[in-house]
């Protein structure tokens, strides 16, 4: 694989930095009440690494990488399916006064 054009990395850094700032401002506005569901949601979102796992598991390079990819798919999909489900389970319990 050839070296990455430095431009791509720079764009990546821009994106990373801007998202981190955006995340910072959004998350400071989340009330402590919802900190646990927030953590389980961001955790579910970070199971986006399943994208990488899918690519590794599905490109049939050799047995070793397929095995690594397979385990990575399992690990990531535990968070993917479980993360949103448990966040929903928690959030369903939060009720305001008089709302039943």
């Amino acid at each position: 694989m050839e070296n990455l054009p430095i431009g791509n990395i720079m764009v990546g850094l821009y994106i990373f930095t801007l998202s981190a700032f955006l995340g910072y401002h959004l998350i400071t506005r989340v009330p402590p009440l919802l900190h646990t569901p927030l953590m389980s949601l961001t955790n579910a979102i970070s199971s986006i690494s399943v994208v990488g796992a899918i690519l590794v598991a599905g490109m049939k390079h050799d047995k070793f990488t397929t095995a690594l990819g397979f385990i990575a798919v399992i690990a990531a999909s535990i968070n993917l399916f479980g993360g949103y489900a448990i966040t929903e389970r928690m959030l369903r319990m939060f009720r305001g006064r008089g709302i039943r």
């Binding site: 990546g12 994106i15 990373f16 981190a20 700032f21 995340g23 953590m39 961001t42 979102i45 970070s46």
Partner: peptide, 11 residues
């Protein structure tokens, strides 16, 4: 991946 990871990392 960069965006989702940055959001999670920041959070």
């Amino acid at each position: 991946l960069i965006i989702a990871g940055a959001l999670d990392g920041g959070s």
